[in-house]
């Protein structure tokens, strides 16, 4: 293969690889599973199960601000009702899941998707206002 063809081929491969990498994550089923799992757990009163799906800093923040254990505090939050309709967008280590009318934000911790913000209300032109979130 000539050097010119090699350069063209390598460029094309790199471009396709980045396009696939950037778009491929958008279908990650684990994000939807964790997001709906949190809403299901809170809805069924399973505080421990819900806390297991929260990122460690979120659990700590919840306990610090409520003054009670995570498993109790999380059940006091209005995280929204479960729904079968889930839309997911993934960009590298971050994801957003829209479950029914609820929006949750997730991030990877030790290779697992965990919720970093829930009970979120949209604010026009600004970030979501989330009752459950990072410090």
């Amino acid at each position: 293969m000539s050097p010119l063809r090699l350069v063209i081929r390598l460029t094309a491969v790199a471009a396709v690889a980045v396009l696939v990498a950037a778009c491929g994550g958008a279908q990650d089923p684990d994000v939807a599973r964790v997001a709906t799992g949190l809403l299901d757990a809170v809805d069924s009163g399973d505080g421990a199960g819900a806390c297991a799906l929260l990122a460690p800093p979120v659990r700590t923040e919840l306990e610090d601000t409520s003054g009670s254990p995570c498993a109790e505090a999380v059940l006091e939050e209005d995280v929204g009702a479960p729904s079968d309709t889930t839309e997911v967008e993934v960009f590298d280590t971050m994801a957003r899941a829209v479950v029914g009318s609820e929006t949750l934000f997730l991030s990877r911790f030790d290779g697992r998707w965990l919720v970093v913000a829930a009970a979120c209300d949209p604010v026009a032109g600004k970030p979501y206002d989330c009752a459950v979130g990072m410090p």
Partner: peptide, 29 residues
Amino acid sequence: AIFLGSWLVQSVAGWAAFNEQRLQQLQVP
């Protein structure tokens, strides 16, 4: 061609990195 290919890659990778940052800030991608 390499310029255009690299610029396309920059736009796609930059879009993903920018949206990752927006999600960390609880903003819509």
